[in-house]
Amino acid sequence: MFQIIRKQEMAKGSIIRFDIEAPKIAKKLKPGQFIILRVNETGERIPLTVADKDAFAGYITIIFQVVGKTTALMRSLNEGDTIKDIAGPLGKPADVEKVGTVVMVGGGTGVAILHHVAKAYKEAGNYVIGIIGSQDIELLILENEMRAICDELIITTDNGSYGERGFVTQPLKKYLSERYDIKLVYAIGPIIMMKNVCKLTKSFKIPTMVSLNPIMIDGTGMCGGCRVKIGGKTKFCCVDGPDFPGNEVDFEELEKRNSLYLKDEKDSLLASIR
């Protein structure tokens, strides 16, 4: 049993932040790694990337968007409630080293994961440029945290309600064409965003890392449900990833695979509401 020690609702309650007591995991977890959790006995196993951790206080921070039955159930939990199972840390950690100037691009809840990775890059002595975006000002998360980490931070919203109007690719393009010292781009967010970032960075020949979130069950390399095509080869996201060189990722396939269970998820959510 893992206790929720802090709960925070973000973006009008559509995004939730939990600090969960998990001292063993907090001690070992590195940026980019994820956990698998199961809320209760009948629950499904869902992978969630960790946004932050405090090894000393013994907790991990997860931030998730309410999209299906499990995440809706998780929203109903409060401080003091417990989550039945958490396994981790899983996946390979982000390969953090000092490279110089890096651009951290995040969209939607992807900013949560990006935050952890950005923090590590900053601590490794890099000059960190942050670009984070969301559909609307209400859905923007971790602005202050990112501002504290990044040497420069650009914010975009699709509808222009805050920061620059448009997508994260616009300021990224500007940076890539103006600065020649950018050594790495990290992009975490919706598949379409990562795809477009990669398209852009490819033309500038800048190495780009992305963090993938395919369908997953056990998270330990056992089921193969999370298979993704990287450079034409099938890889398992849970043991070979979740971070991969973005230009080698077959995003179309990932997008299609991720949409396979949408109907089931909806049915399950509706059944739980009824």
């Binding site: 009948t42 069950i217 056992m222």
Partner: peptide
């Protein structure tokens, strides 16, 4: 086969939607 059996046995998907795994 691992995914199929894990879903059905470990996650008890055969009892979906009583169990959440599709």
């Amino acid at each position: 086969s691992n995914e199929y059996l894990t879903r059905m046995n470990l996650m008890k998907a055969y009892k979906f939607p009583e169990y959440d795994t599709p």
